[in-house]
Amino acid sequence: MNPEILEAGVFVRYPRTGTSGTITRLVDKNGRHFAELDSTGLLYRLDQLIPAESVQKNEREIDRDEQLARLEQERSQVEKEAMEEPPNLDGACAGAG
């Protein structure tokens, strides 16, 4: 891995553990180059990191009307199921008393 292309703000992965995160800062200690990752706050050797693509969720946002329609559908389904089941009238106590 070419450490010159790694800089603050780059999303990287540490393959040994699968840890990934964005480089927050670069540190030189005893002649070695390290990068701190935002996900762990730990330092990783630059030559051990590889550039990675950030995983982004591609979930479609739904509007308020669609959310209300879904809730109403769920509510009516629950009410329908509740009316179909006969009530438990055997007199047994469900508690531990």
Rank of each mutant, 00 (worst) to 15 (best):
A82L: 11
C93W: 01
P3C: 05
L49V: 15
K29V: 10
A94Q: 12
E85W: 09
T24I: 04
P51G: 07
E81K: 15
R70Q: 06
G91W: 14
A35Y: 00
A52E: 01
L89K: 15
E79Y: 05
L26Q: 02
D38L: 04
A96R: 12
E84V: 13
F11A: 09
E81W: 10
R75E: 09
I62T: 11
Q67P: 02
L42N: 08
D63H: 01
M83K: 15
L71S: 01
E81M: 15
L6D: 01
T22S: 03
P87M: 09
P3H: 02
Q67I: 14
D90Q: 08
L49I: 10
A8I: 03
P15G: 04
R13P: 06
R45L: 14
R32K: 02
C93E: 00
L49H: 07
I62A: 06
G31P: 01
L89A: 14
G31S: 04
I5K: 15
E61N: 06
V27I: 04
V10D: 08
V55W: 13
I62V: 13
R75T: 11
R45C: 11
L6Y: 10
A96Y: 14
L37S: 01
G95T: 01
Q48H: 15
F34K: 03
A96S: 13
R25Q: 09
M1P: 07
E79S: 09
V12E: 00
R70T: 08
G97F: 00
